[in-house]
């Protein structure tokens, strides 16, 4: 379990995280989303005791990270897969990490096999591709068999196979009952991996929701096409739906679901050519939510509507 309570982090005059609160529970994959510069990495650094909170608290299993005696046995983290010394062999890199937390050497072999790097264990990390480094970083996070896992942008720069591997691994870790937090700026990726979403922008919480709730919230009604729109509109309005005519003669109905609309049209003998449940994609929902908080966004011309 990860708890962030009223966390604020300022660097000089810049506020990176601003009174942020959320909880990440075990057994789920929680996506930590936000545009670049939203404060995701800062939050993770504070959670890991690398940066100090200006105020508020960031707790792992109820404790500050720096109070954990052998932290890798409770929390596994991958912040930056590139942050390894190239001259060291993969086996030695995991070896010193294991030793620092009193983890046996056998576990090093196990995680190397688990992430598919057993064949290059004796190779120097400097020659690894980004995907291999990402796997090495994940191996390091898994070393202590921790109940809490944090990954900062784990799919960045990976090929489709690598992305799928990470996705399946994250789901499997959560299915074991672990707490899994993954940061990303790609909603399309989180849509496939995460159960819950914590969305932040400019250091503030924008949404703390499940993927399904977010999809429901951005449901845009049902698109209905009929040769007798006036009759249909009257009937739907009477049934309590809100009807909005579209320029091409179709109507968008909110307040009634597809089945209710179909049943009503059948009862009145109104032919329907199309009934489409129209929801905004999560990507669109995300863009809408974070539209005001992208730090380095190009100015978009607002469409006249």
């Amino acid at each position: 379990m990860i708890e962030v309570r009223e966390l604020t982090k300022r660097y000089g005059g810049t506020t990176a995280v601003d009174h942020l609160s959320f909880v990440v529970r075990p057994g789920t994959v929680t996506g930590f989303l936000g545009p670049n510069g939203a404060g995701k990495s800062t939050t993770m650094r504070v959670l890991l005791g690398l940066d100090k909170a200006t105020s508020g608290a960031a707790l792992v299993n109820g404790d500050r990270y720096t109070a954990l005696r052998r932290p890798m046995r409770e929390v596994g983290a991958l912040l930056d897969a590139g942050a390894v010394q190239g001259g060291r062999r993969a086996f030695d890199h995991l070896g010193w990490l294991a030793r620092s937390n009193g983890i046996g050497a056998r576990r090093v072999t196990e995680v190397l096999e688990q992430v598919g790097l057993a064949g290059v264990a004796r190779k120097r990390v400097g020659g690894f591709s980004l995907g291999m480094r990402q796997r090495l970083g994940i191996a390091a996070a898994l070393l202590g068999d921790p109940g809490v896992l944090m990954f900062d942008e784990p799919v960045n720069g990976l090929d489709p196979d690598g992305v799928r591997w990470i996705r399946e691994l994250m789901r499997a870790l959560a299915a074991d009952g672990r707490t899994v937090l993954i940061s990303s700026h790609l909603m399309s990726e989180m849509e496939l991996t995460a159960d819950r979403l914590v969305i932040i922008g400019r250091g503030r919480l924008i949404a703390d929701t499940s993927v399904r709730e977010l999809a429901d919230r951005f449901r845009r009604g049902v698109l209905v096409r009929s040769p007798r729109p006036a009759e249909l509109t009257a009937a739907l309005t009477a049934a309590g739906g809100a009807v909005e005519p579209m320029p091409d003669g179709a109507v968008t109905v909110t307040g009634l679901d597809v089945a209710a609309i179909g049943d009503m049209a059948a009862a009145r003998g109104i032919p329907l050519y199309e009934v489409t449940s129209h929801s905004a994609s999560l990507e669109e929902a995300y863009m809408e939510l974070t539209a005001d908080s992208t730090e380095f966004g190009a100015p978009l011309e607002r469409q006249a509507s």
Binding site: L48, L68, L79, N101, A140
Partner: peptide
């Protein structure tokens, strides 16, 4: 950062 995560003291 990895070192300090492994040994936060």
């Amino acid at each position: 950062r990895t070192s300090l995560t492994a040994l936060p003291r």
